[in-house]
Simulated assay, not measured.
Amino acid sequence: MSLQLTIHKTKKKKEKPDYNNLSFGKHFTDHMFIMDYSAEKGWYDPRITTYEPLTLDPSSLVFHYGQAVFEGLKAYHSEKGVLLFRPDKNFRRLNISNERMNIPEVDVDFMVDSLKQLLHIDRDWIPSTEGQSLYIRPFIIATEPGLSVKPSGEYKLMIILSPVGAYYSNADQMSPVKIYVEDEFVRSVKGGVGFTKTAGNYAASLKAQTKANELGFDQVLWLDAMEKKYIEEVGSMNIFFKINGKIITPALNGSILDGITRDSVIELLRYWNFDVEERRITMEEVYQSQQNGSLEEVFGTGTAAVISPVGTLQWQNEEFTVNNNETGKLSLKLYETIAGIQTGKKEDPLGWTIPLDS
């Protein structure tokens, strides 16, 4: 059945927030996208409507058994108009999460087109100041009422939009962060759901993140669940190491998220003829490379901050610095290049951006 998008614009627009003091995910635009699913109809009734609260049955399965997946991407103002950064990759990854969480897949092309129409309607919410963007959150929840442990027969897919400032303040955007290597809790195991963007992954990470924050660290670096020695990812980022001129990042193994920025960094580095290895790497190897002086840079990659240089790591009660706690040249070059492509200030040799008005 062909899907036909309907549009119901709000009659009363919201007052916009102070764009000089934007927090992450605190303000939302006038409209949202919604589409429903039932076993009988499949995905149906896609619509753009007023942003408003939902009414759900208290027994909706999402509340009890956690069938929920999401994505995160951004729209940027540029001299070339509004740009999206690889949105098709996000909806393809949403389908990977869907498959693992037993949620019906969505039509990628239809979702990209629907997102563009939503952005057209709320385009006056897209910030134009450097470092700001419109954060886009597609997500799916299980809505069938009942308490039987089973896949839901009903779902709701939504896209909401939020104007956001830089992930860090301008002064701190590329300041190195402090990372705590978690050796008690584990995030995921091969065969589990670590490679998906499902809500439970993030709930499971909160205890360790709280502990790290209380100790004065910004993020948690997770190790593998079986041996607790192989590096996996940071709470909100994939992780890269520059050792003796070679760039190393943990290989996707079934418990690591296939980050869109991670993929972009790898493509860009290879385009620049860097030697990039996707393989297993231990904390012992990283520690020894720091001790012998061959560890040049460590940085995280993700949608929120793009590139986050790492200046400090704590592992097994020992804290050690990376690159004198300074932002590395490669980290800075990657940030400036990807952020420049996203905002249209730099050429896009790999064809990543999609103009909203195309």
Rank of each mutant, 00 (worst) to 15 (best):
G81L: 11
G81P: 12
G81A: 09
G81V: 08
V82W: 02
L83G: 10
L83Q: 10
L84G: 03
L84S: 09
L84A: 07
F85R: 13
R86N: 11
R86V: 05
R86W: 01
R86T: 00
R86H: 09
P87V: 10
P87G: 06
P87D: 07
P87E: 05
P87F: 03
D88E: 13
D88R: 05
K89A: 14
F91W: 00
F91K: 02
R93G: 06
R93P: 10
R93E: 02
R93V: 08
L94F: 11
L94A: 01
L94R: 03
N95A: 04
N95I: 10
I96A: 14
I96Y: 12
S97L: 12
N98Q: 04
N98E: 06
E99Q: 15
R100V: 13
R100T: 12
M101N: 00
M101I: 10
M101P: 07
M101G: 05
N102D: 15
I103W: 03
P104Q: 02
E105C: 14
E105R: 14
E105W: 06
D107S: 14
D107P: 07
V108Q: 01
V108C: 08
M111S: 10
V112S: 03
V112D: 05
S114T: 14
L115Y: 05
L115M: 13
L115W: 01
K116G: 04
K116V: 11
K116T: 00
K116M: 13
Q117M: 09
L118D: 11
L118N: 01
L119K: 08
H120V: 15
I121E: 04
D122C: 12
D122P: 05
R123Q: 12
R123V: 04
R123S: 13
D124Q: 14
I126W: 01
I126S: 00
I126R: 08
P127F: 12
P127S: 12
